[in-house]
């Protein structure tokens, strides 16, 4: 039985400018990193991860007047009929990645990402692995 989970890392400080996603509650935060629980179903894992990235992307766009950030994704070629992907450093069990990046940079080919999420599959859920 497979289990699915994700990790995500988002930068909240661009140069001298700090994004205030939470008002002053977490004043001074420059990076946020999370690790999800395990999901039985890949789609639910993806929905949760997309929700996380979309919410942060909306917060970033609302707080700063600069470039518009969007969420985009790519799938590990191993899980996608060898369709090419920009990333080359896929980890074992990594299915897909979501990025938050500057929309305008997409057209130049240089991706300026401020957030990355990675979705993984494991053969055994965490609870089973611990029991073993």
């Amino acid at each position: 039985m497979k289990a699915f989970s994700y990790t995500a890392a988002v930068k909240l400080i661009f140069g001298d400018r700090q994004i205030k996603l939470l008002g002053d509650k977490y004043n001074g935060t420059s990076d946020i990193n999370v690790a999800s629980r395990e999901f039985d179903d890949y789609n639910n894992c993806l929905i949760s991860c997309k929700n996380f990235m979309d919410t942060l992307k909306d917060g970033i766009n609302a707080d700063q007047p600069g470039p518009i950030y969007i969420v985009s994704s790519e799938v590990n070629p191993v899980y996608n009929n060898d369709e090419p992907a920009l990333s080359k450093d896929w980890a074992m069990g990594e299915i897909s990645r979501l990025w938050i990046f500057d929309e305008a940079m997409q057209k130049t080919g240089a991706i300026r990402a401020v957030g990355q999420a990675r979705l993984y599959a494991t053969d055994e859920p965490r609870a089973v692995r611990i029991t073993n």
């Binding site: 977490y26 935060t29 420059s30 990076d31 946020i32 990193n33 999370v34 690790a35 999800s36 629980r37 999901f39 949760s48 996380f52």
Partner: peptide, 8 residues
């Protein structure tokens, strides 16, 4: 859905 969070 989040099990762990690190703020820097």
């Amino acid at each position: 859905d989040i099990d762990a969070v690190i703020l820097l």
